[in-house]
């Protein structure tokens, strides 16, 4: 793992990506810092982060687009996978390297609240909370990006898909509040999930009958539930989607709350996507 981590860090800083990432991140933060703090004479640095979040649309793909896709394209994954290093160690090494670059740029922005502290009273708890939340949020996006880069061997596809994924994650709250919360909508939504499960079964077993049986059972259960206990479906789709509402979780940090459940949420979010990444690589070996 250490070897992979070291190489990735070296890669970020021997190519331009590492420097461009840090420069871009610090520049954008500096622009918002100037606008929201210096020019409007406000010591509330935590709002800068809320404004910078949209930058993850570009920042996350920048860090992760080539991590695994390039290995596959250049066939260097053959070297990694035939070396005595386990797949989880490879994935973790790469992930930590990307997170490190992100962390470095985050530390550099620490200069802004320090500047502010000379001229006014800064809300230390809120700023620290924002930093922790922002770090966890970014790490979560990097995990998603890493997973996407393990799926494709094309950097551009990986970058665009990561952009879309981050966009959807940022928009979850907006979409949920706009979408209908009626029971029939939730039933439809549950139906789609059931169909996806059946397709997944088919994908893994290549057995048509089993997959159809699975789907019929699922549909029957859903319909029975719908007529017997309709209340279950109230807002079900929204509840499900809110599982991915990373922004809501972040906002609690920005208010200066060190919410354990949110920390656990982010860590498990990251763990799930790293696990997916490992599965994708392992799956490819078997197919």
């Amino acid at each position: 793992m250490k070897a992979i981590y070291k190489r990735e860090i070296k890669m970020y800083f021997s190519s331009m990506i590492g420097y461009v990432f840090i420069a871009f991140f610090v520049l954008i933060t500096a622009v918002y810092f100037s606008l929201q703090n210096i020019l409007s004479l406000s010591p509330d640095f935590q709002y800068v982060f809320s404004s910078v979040i949209m930058m993850f649309l570009i920042l996350a793909p920048m860090l992760t687009m080539r991590l695994l896709s390039e290995e596959k394209k250049q066939k260097t994954d053959q070297m990694l996978l035939t070396s005595p290093v386990s797949i989880p160690a490879i994935v973790l090494g790469k992930y930590l390297a990307a997170v490190t670059v992100f962390l470095i740029s985050l530390v550099i922005t620490g200069i802004f609240p320090i500047i502010l502290s000379f001229f006014g009273t800064v809300a230390l708890a809120q700023i620290l909370g924002s930093y922790i939340g922002f770090f966890l949020l970014g790490s979560a996006f990097i995990a998603v990006g890493l997973w996407i880069s393990s799926i494709t061997d094309n950097q551009i596809v990986s970058a665009v898909a990561t952009f879309v994924a981050v966009f959807l994650l940022l928009m979850v709250e907006t979409i949920v509040s706009a979408a209908s919360g009626s029971e029939s909508f939730s039933l439809m939504f549950a139906g789609v999930i059931a169909l996806l499960i059946a397709l997944y079964v088919y994908y893994n077993t290549k057995n048509t009958e089993v997959s159809i049986t699975v789907f019929i059972i699922e549909a029957a259960v859903l319909l029975v539930l719908y007529f017997v206990k309709r209340s279950i479906f109230t807002g079900l789709a929204g509840k499900f989607a809110m599982m991915f509402a990373v922004l809501t979780r972040f906002n609690s940090f920005a208010m200066g709350l060190l919410d354990i459940s949110s920390i656990v949420y982010f860590i498990s979010f990251i763990a799930v996507f790293l696990y997916f990444t490992i599965r994708v690589i392992e799956k490819r070996r078997w197919s």
């Binding site: 890669m11 250049q74 994954d77």
Partner: peptide, 11 residues
């Protein structure tokens, strides 16, 4: 192992 295409990091 030396695969058919050597697994080299070009840069």
């Amino acid at each position: 192992y030396l695969p058919e295409i050597p697994p080299l990091y070009m840069d």
